[in-house]
């Protein structure tokens, strides 16, 4: 019994001063995901990886924008989005002071990206930035002038049209070219 009191005396005051002094978390702490809209290309990798579906990427009603939305209230701070993001648009920060009062909407972050329409069927299928990013990657990947030109065409065609084109050219026995 008294031994415990001795231990108390030995180690003294253990209380953290927080919130009167800032509390420092460990390096690489998994805090709130920070979204950098300027870097987001709308590839939806984070939305697919997110186990709790806190991140959604979908078209708005009139399909004029691709909306990226993150609900911090549902986030489980696993860092999958950070792991899969190709452009570091979403990274886990050290922030842990996340509480909000009365209005739950304060937990939401969103970004609207311009829609890319298919050059064949004119349906929306992706974000303009994703297409641009794809082109940038290809242009630095040691491709010839002609192949790059072809690739540029491919990039603006939606997956459905690509499938149709492949099937058509395959049945005709031609090499597939999309113009």
């Amino acid at each position: 019994m008294l031994k415990l009191l001795d231990i108390s005396k030995k180690y003294g005051d253990a209380t953290h001063k927080y919130p009167f002094e800032p509390y420092v978390v460990a390096d690489n702490f998994r805090g709130k995901p920070a979204y950098k809209f300027d870097l987001c290309i709308g590839c939806a990798a984070c939305g697919i990886a997110c186990p709790s579906n806190a991140i959604t990427v979908q078209f708005n009603e009139d399909q004029s924008k691709l909306v990226w939305e993150f609900d911090c209230g549902r986030c489980i701070f696993c860092g999958r989005c950070d792991e899969v993001c190709p452009t570091a648009a979403i990274t886990l920060s050290n922030e842990f002071e996340l509480a909000v009062k009365f209005d739950k909407n304060a937990l939401i972050q969103r970004g609207e990206l311009e829609t890319q329409y298919c050059s064949k069927c004119n349906k929306p299928f992706s974000a303009k930035r994703l297409v641009h990013y794809g082109y940038e990657c290809l242009s630095k990947a040691n491709l010839g002038e002609k192949r790059l030109k072809e690739a540029e065409n491919y990039l603006t065609v939606c997956p459905t049209c690509k499938k149709t084109a492949t099937a058509t050219s395959f049945t005709r026995g031609e090499e597939m070219v999309i113009e």
Binding site: N28, R30, G79
Partner: peptide, 19 residues
């Protein structure tokens, strides 16, 4: 126990060994 939580934070990035 707070030390062991610190250890968890160090190794996994959160006080619960999650993720």
């Amino acid at each position: 126990r707070e030390y062991s939580m610190k250890l968890a934070e160090l190794v996994t990035g959160g006080r619960k060994t999650y993720g």
